[in-house]
């Protein structure tokens, strides 16, 4: 198995602050590799080091087989990059943006024509090629930014929170595109803070406070959480989560959307005990039901145990 990305003890400090702390992992070719974690966990900084935008403070790695400390130029030819800003020139037309970014990679002439047609078709922009990019809806702009990032057909694609701020339908369409690239052998390195997107990845790296706290397939990560989980529907979510931290038989409690997810020692006894516990504190539980652990539950649980979990 060839590795698209190898990272060894990658570290980046900004002054006294460690943004990325001795991170080590491998990404095989063709994988959709997800980078999951809250804002500030170090995902973007890691991606910036892998794409040559930032120099590592210590440690290093290889991208597409090239050392990222010494062969940045070779790496740049072989990667595509798209950030959460969908960086296109708003005052250039769709066509001009495509021609410009293709030109930077030496894609010109008949190959440009072919790649442009492909990008227009992929982003559904055939009718808009003369339009100024600034006038496009966000979802369309996002697909065009993706198209522009892969005009030179890079074997590795880095996506830094590529779906932030985009509506769920566009997000779904976007992931269909990512799957198409992966099917053709492109390695996808994608960071996100949307848990449901993380489920689409082949493997997930969980980052928290500059450190990699787990790396595994989504299903395997979920399987690590063996304790039962209860979902409590209530109108006072934050207060309930706060109170439940100290309830008997509760390992942890956290907000999950509008509801509260509680990791407990025994499901049956907790279902009995928790409603009275809450009502004694003036909180009504509308329902309390056992659920399968989501990645968010896993994440919360892993963060709690941080340090105990190493790369899987």
């Amino acid at each position: 198995m060839t590795l698209a990305v190898e990272v060894r003890d990658l570290t980046r400090a900004f002054g006294d602050f460690l943004a990325v702390d001795h991170v080590t992992f491998d990404v095989p070719e063709g994988e959709i590799f997800g980078f999951l974690g809250p804002n500030g966990a170090g995902k973007t900084t890691t991606i910036k080091m892998l794409t040559g935008l930032l120099a590592p403070t210590s440690g290093g790695g290889r991208v597409a087989g090239f050392d990222l400390r010494t062969r940045a130029e070779a790496i740049k030819q072989r990667i595509g990059y798209m950030s959460q800003l969908f960086s296109l020139y708003a005052d250039l037309t769709v066509d001009e943006n495509i021609a410009f970014f293709a030109g930077l990679y030496g894609v010109t002439g008949s190959r440009l024509a072919e790649r442009r047609d492909w990008a227009l078709e992929m982003s559904g922009l055939g009718d808009y090629r003369g339009r100024l990019t600034g006038q496009l809806p966000l979802g369309v702009k996002q697909r065009l930014a993706l198209g522009c990032a892969v005009l030179h057909q890079p074997p590795i694609l880095f996506l830094d929170e590529p779906t932030s701020g985009v509506d769920p339908v566009s997000r779904r369409t976007f992931w269909d595109l990512i799957y198409q690239f992966a099917d053709r052998g492109t390695t996808i390195f994608v960071s996100t803070h949307y848990m449901e997107e993380a489920e689409y990845c082949h493997r997930l790296a969980l980052m928290n406070r500059a450190r990699l706290i787990a790396l595994d397939r989504p299903a395997a990560l979920r399987a690590r959480l063996t304790e039962p989980i209860l979902e409590i529907a209530t109108d006072h979510g934050p207060a309930a989560a706060q109170a439940l931290q100290h309830a008997p038989g509760v390992i942890e409690a956290a907000m999950f959307g509008r509801a509260v997810h509680v990791v407990v020692e025994h499901a049956a006894s907790a279902v009995q005990a928790l409603p009275p516990f809450l009502s004694a504190r003036g909180i009504t539980a509308h329902s309390i039901t056992p659920v399968h652990p989501s990645l968010e539950d896993v994440f919360v649980s892993l963060v709690r145990r941080e340090g105990g979990v190493v790369v899987g």
């Binding site: 040559g52 800003l85 969908f86 960086s87 708003a90 930077l104």
Partner: peptide
Amino acid sequence: IGTLEQLMVSP
């Protein structure tokens, strides 16, 4: 607007 970053990851 982030395009500088986009330019710097290019060759």
